[in-house]
Amino acid sequence: MSKSVVELQQIASQVRRDIVRMVHAVNSGHPGGSLGCTDFLVALYFNQMNHNPSQWDMNGKGQDLFFLSNGHISPVWYSVLARSGYFPVAELATFRKLNTRLQGHPTTHEHLEGIRIASGSLGQGLSAAIGAASAKKLNGDNSLVYVLQGDGELQEGQVWEAAMYAAHNKVDNVIAAVDFNGQQIDGSTEQVLSLGNLQAKWEAFGWKVFNTNGNDMTALNTTIAEAKAAAGKGQPIVILLTTSMGKGVDFMEGTHKWHGVAPNDEELSRALAQLEETLGDY
């Protein structure tokens, strides 16, 4: 590990500041899921993934790749990409504004470093990750491919087409993660369309399943390391991240209300008061 848990937590605090400021600035965007997935993305990009931001190219040969399938949580991804050196941190100020490379949902269209496929319409990222992982196998490249999906997103049928395919074809260089916060736009996943026993579902589809607290940096580091150790053994891997939507900002936590709503000026102040500025605001 290149960074301590404390250092990672400090980065996460800054990323959370970035998220609420970006969303507030344009009065649009998705803070809830972004805050909930902050710890996972920070653990991946600053500790677990083998990647080199200064040598970014589309193919990513010899490097681990990451795909964000639930593209609406773009604020956390943009912040983590910028903070790990893919593009200037100052560019975060352009989020969702006209002519920006930081579109509402991630895209390759504006050639933003770190992004390899568009996402936003849900359910497509796992397939893309499996394709990229298959290309790595053909190329003799032993790197890993990560993909994050929302839990509500698992209601999309394509996810299960991809799950069936990866197990059948032993795509064991993919590590998928599910942001298991139990919330979606219209309410809790239990109310809207129950996911049932997610662990049993993934296992029935032939996947190796890990569970962890997605908002505990120590647990995340341990679990991701275990998942990496389980790669290359004939089975695709999924990590179910138990997270709290809106994590880090007390009035946003644990509710679907902040899925796609921006804080007003007063709410922004209250949020920032809870999040230490550790690396300097953009």
């Binding site: 589309m58 193919n59 990513g60 040969k61 790749l65 390899r116 496929i117 359910g123 497509q124 990222g125 796992l126 397939s127 893309a128 990750a129 499996i130 394709g131 990229a132 992982a133 298959s134 290309a135 790595k136 053909l138 190329n139 490249d141 049928g157 394509q158 087409e161 991809a162 069936m164 395919y165 059948h168 074809n169």
Partner: peptide, 23 residues
């Protein structure tokens, strides 16, 4: 050659992903 089964949506996504490795 990749046999995808009767799962066209996944086929399109996997194809898109394969290009990322230069295929």
């Amino acid at each position: 050659f990749f046999q995808m089964g009767i799962a066209e949506a996944n086929m399109m996504g996997v194809a898109a992903g394969l290009t990322i490795g230069g295929k």
